[in-house]
Design a protein around this nucleic acid. Structure first.
Length: 304
DNA sequence: AAGTGAACCAACCGCCTTGAA
DNA sequence: CTTCAAGGCGGTTGGTTCACT
């Protein structure tokens, strides 16, 4: 095919390239306003521009079009982009079709410079929208250790419970030669395994807290199958963590006897009574999976 | 104040699709 | 059916601005 150099109708190298000047913008805008853009190839000459038609078209579509909405993307727009990208992939024009007054170029830039990086920081593959395996493996190893410790502690609890229940009432544990090797700390019905649970909670919430202090987005780890429940006696201590940046507010509720945390469908899910708060605002795209756990989402006051 | 790297974004490049001849 | 022009699209580049040291 005797086709000119791809991408440009300027075969002689006579046409201007690079940033548009205000004067060029005025000429293009005035011409399109008056005549419309019938044929981009012939438009530059008619409009008195030393540009190729393709360049004019791009300038009009991405910058001069009067219906363009410029400036910061709202949280709602960001949600839409992430969700549509999960379905459509890098089909920017298709995504742009769902975001009135935004250009595909703008969305593409926003994705590549911000959302993509953020997802990466969170250990989520921006292409597949799933947790990255290496992070997952590391996390799973870590979790496996905790799970192992938990099971061990639970086994010890059961064992201790039997021992506590079995002696006659007149025999105190402090006088029991089998039970005095670690001092005479009185037993309570607070199980030892709860220390593991507390530690686990501090690790999990710590992840979020660290993320917050580093001005990063919360990290959501995920896997499947493994599950973890909260203490049954409600003795876990710790406060609900709330932190926020200029756009979002994140809440990590404390675990107690009426709430629990588990892994399912590659996500952590907290369950429990409604607190009026939400888990991780701003990432509903990530949370939208076919799980049957209610996730509280509270709209931020700033956007939406 | 100067230097440096990161972040941002406009614009370009090259390939693909579409529709007319 | 083939060819070709034009428009459309996504990837990439490079200049500018910002933040930090």
């Amino acid at each position: 095919m005797a086709r000119p150099a791809a991408g440009c109708c300027d075969t002689m190298g006579l046409l201007k390239k690079g940033p548009w000047t205000p004067d060029e913008d005025r000429k293009l805008f005035a011409y399109v306003q008056q005549h419309g853009f019938g044929n981009w190839r012939t438009l530059p000459e008619k409009a008195g521009l030393q540009r190729c038609g393709k360049s004019c078209r791009l300038r009009w579509i991405n910058y001069l079009r009067p219906d363009l909405k410029r400036g910061k993307f709202s949280l709602q727009e960001e949600h839409t982009i992430i969700q549509l990208h999960a379905f459509l992939g890098n089909r920017w024009s298709a995504i742009a079709a769902h975001l009135p007054n935004r250009t595909d170029n703008e969305i593409k830039n926003y994705w590549n410079t911000r959302i993509k990086k953020r997802l990466n920081r969170m250990g989520i593959d921006p292409t597949t929208h799933k947790p990255r395996s290496n992070l997952l493996i590391g996390t799973l190893n870590h979790m496996a250790q905790w799970e192992s410790a938990r099971l061990e502690a639970e086994a010890r609890l059961v064992k201790d419970s039997k021992r506590i229940l079995s002696p006659p009432s007149n025999q105190k544990s402090s006088s029991n030669s089998n039970n005095n090797n670690k001092g005479s700390r009185p037993r309570t019905n607070k199980s030892e395994c709860l220390d593991v649970l507390k530690a686990w909670q501090s690790v999990v919430t710590g992840m979020f807290a660290i993320s917050a202090t580093n001005n990063l987005d919360p990290v959501i780890f995920g896997s499947n199958q493994s599950s973890w429940g909260a203490a049954e006696d409600g003795s876990i201590v710790g406060e609900e963590l709330i932190f926020e940046d200029d756009r979002s507010k994140y809440t990590v509720p404390k675990l107690n006897n009426s709430s629990s945390m588990c892994l399912r469908n590659s996500m952590y899910h907290w369950t429990g009574p409604r607190t009026g708060r939400y888990m991780v605002e701003g990432f509903s795209d990530i949370s939208v999976h076919d799980f049957d756990y209610p996730i509280q989402i509270e709209q931020n006051h700033q956007d939406l």
